[in-house]
């Protein structure tokens, strides 16, 4: 993860200067973290990729400031989607992310598939 550290050093005790290199971590991205947690709980996904594309929409309608998490692209593969229609899969995802969709998320692109989709 980070550079080599002496074993005695605790990673959390980072010097104040470290704040100049701002790397987003889940703690600072509550929406992302909540999405990941809720989708994992609801679908036990084989693959789950959440891409935050909020930065691409700077100044655009729905944009809520530099740190706002508003635009996401979601790719999810789960066995739970087996036998479900596209509408039902997306509805299930909408339901799992109900709170986030009602508050922070302005745009969410969803690609939901089941393992058997790719076969044949």
């Amino acid at each position: 993860m980070a550079e080599t550290q002496t074993p005695s050093q605790t990673p959390s005790q980072s010097p104040a200067s470290a704040s100049t290199t701002h790397t987003p971590v889940p703690d600072e991205r509550p929406v992302y973290a909540a999405m990941q947690r809720k989708l994992t709980e609801a679908f036990a996904p084989i693959t789950l990729t959440i891409r935050d594309e909020s930065y691409k929409h700077s100044g655009h309608m729905g944009y809520m400031g530099d740190d706002a998490e508003t635009h996401f692209v979601l790719t999810i593969v789960s066995e739970r989607f087996e036998g479900m229609s596209r509408l039902d899969r997306q509805r299930a995802i909408h339901k799992a992310l109900k709170d986030e969709l009602a508050t922070s998320i302005h745009a969410l692109a969803i690609r939901a598939s089941a393992p058997s989709d790719t076969k044949g």
Binding site: R86, L87, Q90, H94, A102, A107, L108, A109, R111
Partner: peptide, 24 residues
């Protein structure tokens, strides 16, 4: 029963939003 816009209807039946339309 769909939280986002756009929405496509064909012959009175809901088909889906942008992702579904693109995939289909």
């Amino acid at each position: 029963d769909w939280p986002t816009i756009p929405q496509l209807y064909i012959k009175g039946e809901f088909v889906g939003g942008c992702d579904i339309v693109r995939e289909m």
